[in-house]
């Protein structure tokens, strides 16, 4: 532990001036080429370059990742959440700018990219996206103007690292934990504990 962490700190001065919040970005990651981008989280950053940089080193390293997109929170328009799967509408037309559509399949789930539609405004974009992408599971649609979506570029494809990262995944410990439990518990008791673990607790 560094000395600074150990020292007894006292403060007699005022706090520095407050800094206002910077921009609110929504981050999506994709696992492999051709896979949809799925919602991963948020970052606060003053510009898109830093937003993507932060996203790479956080959400890009949660699980295998080859690409990241980001948009400002204020650029998204969400349709209502429906308790039943959305029925495809017959909204047609392709006038207006391009919108990227995201679908949401379950309560508390993550939005993921579905494709693009053209529309003059967000409301029409949601209707047209519902016509195009409402499947048997989709409960809600989000649209974002495609020109507000920023993506990591070709030259930045290395996001997930090649070295062993199982140290930060629960499954990286499964074998060792089982082997170590065998000193204390018989196979049957352990197996019951493990199953119970997953079913009821974790």
């Amino acid at each position: 532990m560094s000395k600074v962490r150990q020292q007894e700190l006292t403060f007699s001065h005022d706090l520095p001036e407050p800094t206002p919040d910077s921009k609110h970005w929504v981050i999506y990651t994709r696992k492999r080429d051709g896979a949809p981008y799925k919602w991963a989280g948020y970052v606060d950053a003053p510009d898109v370059a830093l937003a993507l940089q932060f996203a790479r080193e956080h959400y890009g390293l949660d699980e295998a990742c080859i690409g990241i997109i980001a948009h400002q929170h204020e650029d998204a328009s969400d349709g209502e959440y429906s308790l039943e799967p959305l029925q495809p509408t017959d909204a047609a037309g392709d006038d207006g700018q391009a919108w990227t559509a995201f679908t949401l399949e379950r309560r508390g789930g993550n939005h993921q990219t579905a494709g693009t539609v053209n529309a003059l405004d967000a409301e029409t974009a949601i209707e047209r996206a519902t016509a195009a992408f409402a499947g048997p599971k989709v409960r809600s649609i989000r649209v974002v103007p495609s020109n507000c979506i920023h993506e990591t570029t070709e030259s930045e494809l290395t996001i997930w690292r090649t070295h062993d990262m199982t140290y930060k995944l629960a499954k990286g410990y499964a074998k060792d934990v089982r082997a170590k439990w065998s000193r204390f518990r018989d196979e049957k008791t352990y197996e019951q504990y493990r199953k119970d673990d997953i079913a009821k607790h974790f």
Binding site: K168, A170, G172, Y173, D176, V177, K180, F184
Partner: peptide, 11 residues
């Protein structure tokens, strides 16, 4: 992950 790594350390 935290819990499993903790369990591994305690074991």
């Amino acid at each position: 992950f935290h819990f499993k790594s903790g369990e591994d350390m305690v074991l």
